[in-house]
Simulated assay, not measured.
Amino acid sequence: MSAGLLPKPQMRGLLTKRLRFHMVGAFILSVGSGLLYKFGVAEPRKRAYTEFYKNFDPMKDFEAKKAAGVFQSVPSTES
């Protein structure tokens, strides 16, 4: 009435084997999420800033804010 023998467990190199597997997975996951952020967030943001500043006139913006009374130290031209 002998049952089948169980295989011996791996006692040497188990940590190295599992660590190698998890390090490769972590590397692939981090590179993938970095690329996803770069092309999904950073590049569209750069394009939006470039498009905004292409037609931006800082003096016109300053005059509009000055007329609206946004600045406390700049006298308004409405008076």
Score class of each variant (00 low, 15 high):
residue 1 M to H: 01
residue 2 S to N: 10
residue 2 S to V: 02
residue 2 S to Q: 08
residue 3 A to K: 03
residue 3 A to F: 02
residue 3 A to T: 03
residue 3 A to I: 00
residue 4 G to I: 01
residue 5 L to C: 00
residue 5 L to Q: 01
residue 5 L to Y: 00
residue 6 L to P: 00
residue 7 P to L: 02
residue 8 K to G: 01
residue 9 P to K: 06
residue 10 Q to D: 08
residue 10 Q to Y: 03
residue 10 Q to N: 07
residue 10 Q to I: 06
residue 11 M to H: 04
residue 12 R to E: 10
residue 12 R to D: 07
residue 12 R to F: 09
residue 13 G to W: 04
residue 13 G to D: 05
residue 13 G to P: 02
residue 13 G to H: 05
residue 14 L to Q: 07
residue 15 L to M: 10
residue 15 L to Y: 12
residue 16 T to I: 04
residue 16 T to G: 12
residue 16 T to V: 07
residue 16 T to H: 08
residue 16 T to W: 05
residue 16 T to Q: 11
residue 17 K to V: 02
residue 17 K to L: 10
residue 20 R to W: 09
residue 20 R to G: 04
residue 20 R to E: 10
residue 20 R to D: 11
residue 20 R to K: 09
residue 21 F to V: 07
residue 22 H to N: 09
residue 23 M to N: 11
residue 23 M to R: 12
residue 24 V to Y: 03
residue 24 V to G: 00
residue 24 V to M: 09
residue 24 V to P: 00
residue 25 G to K: 11
residue 26 A to D: 08
residue 27 F to T: 14
residue 27 F to N: 08
residue 28 I to Y: 01
residue 29 L to Q: 05
residue 29 L to R: 07
residue 29 L to E: 05
residue 29 L to Y: 06
residue 29 L to T: 07
residue 31 V to K: 04
residue 33 S to F: 09
residue 33 S to V: 14
residue 33 S to L: 12
residue 34 G to W: 05
residue 35 L to W: 10
residue 36 L to I: 06
residue 36 L to E: 03
residue 36 L to P: 00
residue 37 Y to C: 09
residue 38 K to E: 14
residue 38 K to Y: 13
residue 39 F to C: 01
residue 39 F to E: 07
residue 40 G to R: 04
residue 41 V to L: 09
residue 42 A to Q: 12
residue 42 A to Y: 11
residue 42 A to R: 09
residue 43 E to T: 09
residue 43 E to Y: 08
residue 43 E to F: 07
residue 45 R to Q: 15
residue 45 R to W: 14
residue 45 R to P: 00
residue 45 R to V: 10
residue 47 R to M: 13
residue 48 A to I: 01
residue 48 A to P: 00
residue 49 Y to I: 10
residue 49 Y to E: 14
residue 50 T to E: 15
residue 50 T to L: 14
residue 50 T to W: 04
residue 51 E to S: 14
residue 52 F to I: 05
residue 53 Y to F: 15
residue 53 Y to L: 15
residue 53 Y to S: 10
residue 54 K to R: 15
residue 54 K to M: 13
residue 54 K to D: 15
residue 55 N to D: 15
residue 55 N to F: 07
residue 55 N to K: 14
residue 55 N to Y: 06
residue 56 F to C: 10
residue 58 P to W: 02
residue 58 P to K: 03
residue 58 P to C: 03
residue 60 K to R: 13
residue 61 D to V: 14
residue 61 D to R: 15
residue 61 D to C: 12
residue 61 D to K: 13
residue 62 F to Q: 04
residue 63 E to S: 06
residue 64 A to E: 15
residue 64 A to L: 13
residue 65 K to F: 13
residue 65 K to S: 14
residue 65 K to T: 02
residue 66 K to N: 15
residue 66 K to H: 02
residue 67 A to F: 04
residue 69 G to T: 05
residue 69 G to S: 09
residue 69 G to F: 05
residue 70 V to S: 03
residue 71 F to Y: 14
residue 71 F to H: 12
residue 71 F to R: 06
residue 71 F to N: 06
residue 71 F to A: 06
residue 71 F to P: 02
residue 71 F to E: 06
residue 72 Q to C: 05
residue 73 S to F: 12
residue 74 V to R: 04
residue 74 V to P: 01
residue 75 P to Q: 11
residue 76 S to K: 10
residue 76 S to Y: 01
residue 77 T to S: 11
residue 77 T to G: 03
residue 77 T to W: 02
residue 78 E to L: 08
